[in-house]
């Protein structure tokens, strides 16, 4: 029996699409159900997290994590893998580092320290939980990207139809075995 296969089409392109928009790589491969599942779960978590943090918890700043660990945006390492939804933060952080003004109306630009302080005092734990939600959304998308590139870890062979034990073609009356007469 031949093992079932998943048509991954162009795995590299599928992985890139899966990074850009969670689920898009699977849509490209024709795995629509999985694409919907990944999109709903990952983008759902990301959106809920962003709502909790009022859209101010995804940002990036270029600092050395060894010399300035308090300013280092650790959560963004996970958030980055949500793809295009979090990419503006990297662009804004890079522009800020080189002394340029934020673009796109300042979307996902680093908020000022006053804004962050006010957010933390007003929302308390929600800021942290929202950051965790968005970070885990990105980390989960790594699994989705890998699935788009490599396929699922286990490809189940279809279970064979239950085979009945071979019964001898003997009428109900039975034929006496040799020597039993």
């Amino acid at each position: 029996m031949s093992e079932p296969t998943v048509n991954l089409r162009n795995p590299s392109l599928a992985a890139l699409l899966a990074w850009a928009v969670p689920g898009l790589g699977h849509f490209y491969q024709g795995r629509t159900g999985k694409g919907i599942l990944y999109a709903v779960c990952i983008l759902g978590l990301y959106t809920i997290g962003m709502v909790m943090g009022e859209g101010k918890i995804v940002y990036w700043r270029w600092v050395n994590p060894l010399s300035n660990p308090e300013k280092f945006c650790l959560y963004y390492l996970g958030q980055f893998f949500v793809g295009l939804a979090s990419l503006p933060a990297l662009i804004q952080g890079t522009l800020h580092y080189f002394g340029f003004q934020p673009i796109l109306g300042g979307i996902l630009a680093e908020p000022s320290q006053n804004v962050l302080n006010a957010l933390n005092s007003r929302l308390n734990k929600l800021v942290e939980i929202g950051s965790i939600y968005t970070c885990i959304a990105g980390l989960l998308n790594i699994l989705a990207i890998y699935d788009a590139y490599e396929g699922p870890a286990y490809l189940e062979v279809e279970e064979p139809v239950a085979e009945r034990p071979v019964e001898p073609a003997v009428p109900s009356g039975g034929i006496p075995a040799e020597g039993s007469a």
Partner: peptide, 21 residues
């Protein structure tokens, strides 16, 4: 919601059959 999403995505990355997912 966090636990549900984690378990769904992890399982989907392991299997292709919906019954198993």
């Amino acid at each position: 919601p966090l636990v549900v999403a984690i378990s769904l995505v992890y399982s989907a990355s392991r299997h292709e059959s919906w019954r198993r997912i």
